[in-house]
Design a protein around this nucleic acid. Structure first.
Lengths: 337, 337
DNA sequence: CTGAAAGCGCTTACAG
DNA sequence: CTGAAAGCGCTTACAG
């Protein structure tokens, strides 16, 4: 059975398609009796407007693209979840674009979003390709960059103050009496990793602790890399009593490595993570971490985007900087020499 | 700057829009010289076809809808991830529809998918509303039901043999010497929970162990409910030595409750979960679980759907039943009285 | 080898 | 109070 169109409804209700359109959209007065006939026909035929036609005509799709680097990272999964939720409330669908940290895939997805005429996009960069963003901007598609800063003037941006958060995490460890504080970083081309790491170094310096490169290991923000980085740390000659892991997924991996090495957390070694994903509170010991305000971030990103979409004026290059906060749980403890 | 259309390209290349369309789609022979002119114009203007117009005309959107009950459940996040991945490879975009286990939201999302003329949908039910599916089927939209069975004749279905998996999990515990085996279930209106529970009961029976209702607690498949269920279990007069938790998220919550109660896993109590989400191997102790073949499930679902989309014939009501397998890790151990 | 034209299903000035 | 018609940007018979 072919789809029912506005024409079918018009025929059934004995009116023009103009009138059907107006009652469907409630966009001009229609005589109550006529309106009722149309409503009945609509109901009986089970009419469902064709968004493609509507969008083609009106230029509005009520669809936004969400580009994330890695949907298996729980942090991004949470963000995606929130964006979807807020979008739904506002009547927007979201096309999920997982770039897999792959510039080629990201680029192809941007083409798709362009072709599908999305009204806007929320963009979490997979790295260093501002070209993709430029293509969006050139096509007048508003984009809000979230989480990972990008060298582009023409987008709004909502970020965390990662440097300060890195500082605060380190400070927590220092306050607890730690002096040998290791750090497991993410890929160093990613701004969040870099900045957290900068905060770590600044904090050491301000507290008169020498920076020791032997205490630094790099991971890729995923579980296994955290485990491996921790193993390297434990088998080296360094004697860390605490480690600041730059995201929670790696922190959980690191905890696992510590356990396997027979260490007790936090008695033998303290671990602090970053993100505050839901599972942190459920594992043992519960993970101390720097919380990212995911909901707030998603909310700001969507609000900024929607302001553009409904044409409300605001500065083109608005920057919103959110702050992280320390969530003390059970994986960090006082260190007595 | 307004979007560039096929008309702009035609004008620039001095040909008809017909010809431009044909070179864009490579759909009929075009004189090499002419073709080159078009290609150049395409490039210079940065032409990007408008999918809306194309889809409206051709009736094909190369977009599928993915309806999941709860995107914050890691299992569904993984499934979504895989579907997106396979879809991308085949040239399909996916619209993420998180029903939040809310029938109203699910229903509104189905409307959206209908309006957006998706080519097909992969559907993981939030419960018991076959009406939504009927609307899809009535509009000739192929749907593949995954994970949670649904009383509908007109869809393909890819499921896990949950009953057998429940049996196998329980058998593992019995083989280890356990006789007092508790079970933390999911909502009992969900087929997977029900069926796993049936398998549990069958296994007890076949092994001459009396079913004890005091050993059963219900959760909602999320972390906190697993923790709470475990607390109830521990504070009751029952004396479980092992617990079969019907998904991993709850199992992790249950482990946390056991730890907080001062129990050591698996020495004092064994725990087996269900799903095999990525984090299972990273926590301590690593969680023994029944693995769901997520990749296989996503692959079958997409293949079935795509077969429909490209018009390949196959039975309308095809049922694919996958089997789970036991992943022994460190949260279960032999019980000596 | 190429183009003029119909038509996909809508919205929306314009007219009465 | 309502309708005829143009047009959104494409694809695709049809014709030459």
């Amino acid at each position: 059975m072919p789809r029912v169109t506005i024409k079918d409804v018009a025929r059934a209700a004995q009116v023009s398609i103009t009138t059907v359109s107006h009652v469907v959209n409630n966009t001009r007065f229609v005589d109550p009796a006529t309106k009722q006939r149309v409503l009945t026909a609509l109901e009986e035929l089970g009419y469902q407007p064709n968004s493609l036609a509507r969008s083609l005509r009106s230029g509005v799709t009520r669809t936004i693209g969400l580009v994330v680097p890695d949907a298996s990272n729980l942090f991004f999964a949470d963000v995606a979840r929130k964006i979807e939720d807020i979008g739904f409330q506002q009547g927007y669908s979201v096309i999920l674009c997982n770039s897999d940290n792959n510039p080629g895939k990201q680029s192809r997805y941007i083409n798709t979003l362009l072709a599908k005429q999305v009204d806007g996009v929320i963009f979490i960069s997979s790295g260093s390709e501002p070209d993709d963003l430029m293509r969006l901007v050139e096509n007048n598609i508003p984009v809000v960059v979230a989480d990972r800063d990008v060298p582009l003037e023409l987008a709004d941006v909502v970020l965390l103050d990662n440097e300060q958060a890195g500082y605060d995490a380190t400070k927590h460890l220092i306050n607890l009496g730690h002096r040998f504080i290791a750090c497991i970083t993410g890929p160093n081309h990613l701004a969040p990793s870099m900045q957290r790491f900068e905060g770590y170094k600044r904090c050491l310096k301000e507290n008169g602790i020498d920076f020791d490169p032997k205490l630094i290991e790099m991971g890729d923000f995923r579980f296994p890399s955290g485990e491996e980085a921790m193993q390297r740390l434990l088998s080296s000659s360094s004697r860390a009593t605490a480690v600041f892991v730059l995201n929670d997924m790696m922190a959980i991996g690191a905890m696992s490595a510590a356990h396997k090495a027979g260490l007790s957390i936090p008695k033998d070694i303290s671990i602090i993570g970053f993100d505050d994903i839901e599972i942190d509170a459920a594992i043992t010991p519960a993970l101390t971490t720097m919380a990212q305000p995911i909901e707030e971030m998603a909310q700001y990103a969507m609000n900024l985007l929607i302001e553009h979409l409904v044409g409300k004026k605001h500065e083109l290059n608005q920057r919103i900087i959110l702050t992280s906060r320390l969530i003390k749980r059970d994986s960090t403890a006082r260190w007595e020499e």
